[in-house]
């Protein structure tokens, strides 16, 4: 961080705090998880960017969705996402969450993850390299700075629509709705 940043700190300390402490939830969703251990250990060292893995959703504010999402995992992802405190950021890692990737015709994987939970950014590639994660993180910083990383706000506002999509995929959900806002038809 250089000197000019200090001014920014004073202007909006919460934003800076968000930016430099992106704590990623430790959840191995798909095959992309194999690049996470190298990224968080000595060679690539994600801690330079303030990214560390944490154990529970309650402590985290970054959700890296590493790879394909099967229908069964989707349920766990929604549960985990809803437990994370705001502000929270989601990044889809790999081409599978974007559009199904090479499992475009599989009967058990979700094709477009953003139909079910909101996503702030995507990392394309199959499998993306560790550098790509860092590019994504710096990109996310910019978005946070500009106030554009607002997926969680969208989730709150359009919760009804998301919930409807989730129920279409998973059947009846056995937990109560998180918000009452954003019902289907408003």
């Amino acid at each position: 961080m250089d000197r000019n940043d200090i001014k920014k700190w004073f202007k909006s300390p919460d934003k800076m705090g968000d930016k430099y402490s992106l704590w990623a939830i430790y959840f191995c969703t798909g095959c992309g998880i194999i690049e996470i251990p190298p990224v968080i250990t000595a060679r690539w060292d994600a801690e330079r960017f303030g990214v560390i893995p944490v154990a529970t959703p309650r402590q985290s504010n970054l959700f890296l969705i590493t790879g394909y999402v099967s229908v069964k995992t989707l349920r766990a992802i929604i549960r985990t996402y809803e437990q994370m405190p705001e502000p929270k950021y989601t990044v889809g890692f790999g081409s599978c969450p974007i559009n199904g990737g090479m499992y475009w015709d599989s009967y058990n994987t979700i094709k477009h993850l953003d139909k079910y939970i909101p996503i702030d950014g995507w990392i394309a590639g199959c499998m993306p390299r560790p550098e790509a994660i860092f590019v994504a993180v710096t990109h996310l910083w910019t978005l946070i700075d500009q106030g554009k990383a607002k997926a969680y706000v969208k989730y709150r506002e359009k919760y009804g629509l998301y919930r409807k999509n989730q129920e279409m995929a998973l059947g009846k959900l056995d937990w109560p709705p998180l918000y009452t806002t954003g019902g289907g038809n408003d």
């Binding site: 798909g30 099967s70 069964k72 995992t73 499992y103 015709d105 009967y107 058990n108 994987t109």
Partner: peptide, 14 residues
């Protein structure tokens, strides 16, 4: 198990 089931063996037939 089943969180990562993609039906590989089916996809390979196609």
């Amino acid at each position: 198990p089943g969180y990562l089931h993609r039906g590989f063996e089916k996809l390979m037939e196609l």
